[in-house]
Each structure stands twice: as C-alpha cells, then as structure tokens.
C-alpha cells in the first residue's frame, strides 16, 4: 500500500512531454521578441526616413556573413541529431563542437560590429549619439537592444549545447534517449529564426 505509484506518474520519462514543454517555451521567446518587433514596427512607421538614413551606418557585409554563420550552425546542430539517432557519437560531438564554434564566430563578428559603432560614438550617452535627431536615436537604441538581447540568447544557446555535450560524454544522452539534444537544438534554431527577422529589419532597409 505505502509504495503505490500510479502508472501515469509525472516522474516517468516522457520525451514527447519534454519536447512539448520546450516548444511552449519557444512560443514565449517568440512573443518576448514580439514586443520588440511591435515597438520597431510602430517607430519605423512613424519615422521611416530617419530609420532608412540611420540604417546606412550598419555593415551589410558583416550582417550577411553572420546570417550565413548562424544558418550553418543550425545545419550542424540538425545534423548532430541525425548522427546521434544513427548511433555515431563521435560525429555528434564533432558537429556540436562545430555549432559552438559557429556561435563564437557569430559573437566575435558581433563584437567587431559593436566596437565600430562605439568608435563612432553611436551608443546611448556617447558623443555622436547625443547629436542625432530623436528618431535616429530610436533606431540605434533598438538596434543595440534587439541585437544585444539576441546575442544573450546566442550565449545561452551555446551554453545549453555545452551541457548537452557533457551529457553525451556522461552517457546520459544516448542514441536511445536524446531529447535533451533535441531540445537544445530547438532552442538553437529559435535563435536562428529570430536573427532571420532581425537581419533584414535592421541591415536591409534600402
């Protein structure tokens, strides 16, 4: 009697539930950025000329390269799931290392981009920024806020994938039990999807 446990226990393994939970979390992430996209939409509508003018300050080449880097990292993480499903653990680990390296590449490029903006004094409170018209200030602040928040998600995603690698090493994530890898991958793809929208909205207003 004392040890009676139900068959449908919340402590059982349930991969579908874990994935479902991850998807729900991604919905909240979408709407978190959604609030920012809303602000962006309204201010761009109100100040389209200024946004256009300010966007020329951004480096299309760096933006494009970063887009390619993120898309490729999405590919490697997707491939790593296939590799693990096929039981090829070495390849899985290699692909995850590649993904994390791509994440770092993205951040390094972002660092150079931001540094260039800082040198131009375009961060709030800096010299050049203070002399901009309000609408252009809005553009640059949204640029820093949105790419900054996105960068934070890149870091979180990279760390998550690092944890998954640790799990694979500890043989907790295996070809029979890989929901953590799937969930880490899902998060990573979300980071990619958000960038897919940020890129044209900031770099490609022409």
């Amino acid at each position: 009697m004392e040890n009676f446990v139900l068959a449908n226990s919340g402590h059982n393994r349930d991969d579908e539930a874990s994935k479902f939970g991850m998807w729900l979390f991604l919905f909240t992430e979408l709407l978190l950025f959604g609030g920012l996209f809303l602000v962006y939409t309204i201010y761009r509508y109100l100040n389209s000329e200024a946004f256009l003018h300010a966007s020329y300050e951004l480096d299309v080449v760096m933006g494009t390269v970063n887009t390619v880097v993120l898309l490729t990292s999405s590919l490697t993480v997707a491939l790593s799931i296939t590799a693990l499903q096929k039981g090829n653990i070495k390849l899985t680990q290699g692909l995850l290392v590649a993904t994390i390296l791509f994440a770092l590449t993205f951040l390094v490029i972002k660092y150079f981009e931001w540094s260039a903006k800082f040198e131009h004094g375009l961060f709030p409170g800096m010299d050049h920024y203070d002399h901009l018209i309000p609408a252009e200030k809005m553009f640059f602040f949204l640029y820093f806020f949105m790419t900054g928040l996105h960068g934070l998600h890149v870091i979180v995603g990279g760390v998550l994938l690092g944890f998954v690698m640790w799990d694979i090493k500890k043989k907790k994530t295996t070809p029979d039990n890989f929901v953590y890898l799937e969930n880490g991958g899902l998060y990573w793809h979300l980071v990619d999807i958000i960038w897919i929208f940020l890129f044209p909205l900031f770099y490609l207003i022409h």
Binding site: N3, V5, S9, H11, R13, D14, E16, V179
Partner: peptide, 11 residues
C-alpha cells in the same frame, strides 16, 4: 516505481 527506460506514448 518511476519508469525511466522507455518514454511514455499517447495517441
């Protein structure tokens, strides 16, 4: 007992 070997399956 918690069953952690196989994942639960629903329709």
């Amino acid at each position: 007992m918690a069953d952690n070997t196989k994942s639960r399956h629903l329709p």
